Simulated assay, not measured.
Amino acid sequence: MAVQTVRRTPLSAMGVAVSYFIKASLWLWVAVNIGMVIWIILNSLKSSREIFQNPVGLPIEWRWENFVTAWVTSGLGEAAVNTVVLVVISVALIMGLSIPAAYAIARLGGRSSGPVGTMFAFGMSIPFQALAVPMVLMGVGISRFMIEWITGAWDPRITVALFYVVLSLPFSVFVLIGYFRSLPSELEEAGALDGASPMRTFWQIMVPLARPGITTVAVLNVLSLWNETVIVLLLVPNQRMQTLNVALLNFYDNMQYTSNWGGLFAGVTIVVLPMILLYLFLGRRIVSGMTQGIGK
């Protein structure tokens, strides 16, 4: 019985080589990022002198007080509360608006659903730099109007939350449109046959089935808003109202007087570690939600 051998063409061999190169590059990128996180955490437990003398080794003396300094002295504790409140309120508003909007466009829009979805996709393509000056002008106008005509006082963090919602809606609606379109329409027909109203079908059938996509969008918005810095810098002049990233920048500016590098690394750890843990816990759901809803 003759044995047939498969000869690889130069193109197929090149494709295999490119595939291995891409995989090796990705693993190298992952290793560098993991090493960077470990390096930051280790240096957050050292004194400033030890950081310069032994930047890559284990701490000789584990200085947990660096986290106390970063949390209390630099104002990261108060900034953490501001960040959590802003992110929670903003993400709740984003999801409360984007879920019904995406469902309406995906299921009830008819011929207009395509152009409307395209408009949301176009909203994602607008660079943030083009919106910076209009946001500042609108923020000043909103504050002045509320102070002079409505409430007599105004918290600029409310303005920040409003801009968070507006800027995050295009991405959220666009992703959820694809996810709702991936769900079979027979489910809605079965609900209608059982006497369920469109609203009941939406809340009790479609939303639970779309939970992976909803979780994906919610987590990605949390990651994005947690790391946001520029909008707060532009709209919130009061340091006591600023978020973690801005407080960390202020802490870095004070380093020229204190040289507390251990405390600075501790502050960086406080800012980045919660989001790393969140992604590690929900990373598989994020990937699943994106792959199921994409391209629909």
Rank of each mutant, 00 (worst) to 15 (best):
M1Q: 01
A2K: 07
Q4C: 00
T5I: 13
R7Q: 08
R8T: 11
P10V: 12
V18G: 07
F21S: 14
A24F: 04
A24H: 02
W27L: 15
L28W: 11
A31K: 10
I34M: 15
G35V: 09
V37I: 15
V37E: 04
I38C: 13
I40F: 08
I40K: 02
I41F: 15
S44Y: 07
L45C: 05
S48K: 05
I51F: 07
G57C: 05
P59T: 09
W62P: 00
W62L: 03
R63I: 14
E65W: 10
V68Y: 11
A70R: 02
W71I: 08
T73L: 04
S74M: 11
E78H: 07
E78T: 11
T83Y: 03
V91Q: 09
I94H: 10
L97N: 09
I99V: 15
A101Q: 15
Y103F: 15
Y103H: 11
A104S: 14
A104N: 06
A106R: 13
L108S: 08
L108C: 06
R111K: 13
A121K: 07
G123F: 07
F128H: 07
Q129H: 05
A130E: 06
M138W: 10
G139A: 04
G139F: 00
G139P: 01
G141K: 13
F145W: 12
G152N: 08
A161G: 05
L162G: 14
Y164Q: 12
V165S: 10
V166S: 12
V166F: 06
V166C: 10
L167P: 11
L169W: 08
F171C: 02
S172Y: 09
V175M: 14
L176Y: 14
I177H: 07
G178L: 06
Y179D: 01
Y179L: 10
Y179G: 04
R181F: 06
L183R: 01
L183Q: 01
S185V: 12
E186K: 00
A190R: 02
A190S: 12
F202I: 00
F202Y: 15
W203C: 04
P212L: 05
P212N: 08
I214F: 04
T215Y: 04
V219I: 15
V219E: 11
L220C: 02
V222N: 01
L223V: 13
L223M: 13
S224M: 07
S224L: 04
I231T: 13
V232D: 10
L233K: 06
N238F: 02
Q239D: 14
Q239S: 11
R240M: 08
N245W: 05
V246M: 06
N254P: 02
W261Q: 01
G262S: 03
G263C: 03
G263L: 04
L264W: 03
F265C: 06
A266K: 00
A266T: 03
G267E: 01
I270Y: 03
V272T: 13
P274C: 02
P274H: 03
M275R: 03
L278P: 03
Y279I: 09
F281K: 11
L282T: 14
L282A: 13
S288W: 14
G289H: 08
T291Q: 09
I294P: 00
G295E: 12
G295S: 15
